[in-house]
């Protein structure tokens, strides 16, 4: 079975964010490899039950980041993308802020701290591989 994405309409996270973030995870983890063809915007919108424009916006956002090639009539194709060079200080501050925000939001929603920590350790191991 190929890669798939999930959309939870009751999560409180906007559809565009969920779809873009889900796709980006698959792209970064190379579960969507360069050259892979993504479903048409209409088909993905239909399968997820969201507006066509939401998927179009998600695709455009990822295309702007250099992940996708959007050519009229050819759908979306995954591109080989090299990570841009970035100053350490710039990404680290933003990353920490976002991570803390996410952890706080998750714990505020009732998730136990030790389980969140365990998930972070698992994620760290996967990145280090």
């Amino acid at each position: 079975m190929g890669a798939s994405i999930r959309y939870d309409p009751e999560s409180g996270v906007p559809a565009i964010r969920q779809i873009t973030d889900n796709l980006r995870v698959l792209l970064v983890e190379e579960r969507l490899k360069p050259g892979a063809q993504l479903p048409s915007m209409r088909r993905l919108a239909m399968e997820l039950g969201v507006h066509f424009g939401t998927v179009a916006e998600a695709y455009r956002e990822l295309a702007a980041e250099g992940w996708l090639d959007l050519r009229h009539g050819r759908g979306a194709t995954v591109l080989a993308r090299s990570a841009p060079s970035i100053r350490r200080k710039a990404w680290l501050d933003e990353f920490r802020d976002r991570l803390r925000g996410l952890i706080a939001q998750t714990r505020a929603g009732g998730a136990p701290g030790d389980e969140v920590a365990e998930e972070l350790r698992t994620a760290a191991k996967e990145i280090a591989r």
């Binding site: 999930r6 959309y7 009751e10 969507l32 892979a36 993504l38 399968e47």
Partner: peptide
């Protein structure tokens, strides 16, 4: 219950 919808990311034409 409508909760999570999942979609395969196959580019195969329908």
């Amino acid at each position: 219950v409508w909760r999570v919808r999942q979609a395969e990311l196959s580019g195969q034409p329908d």
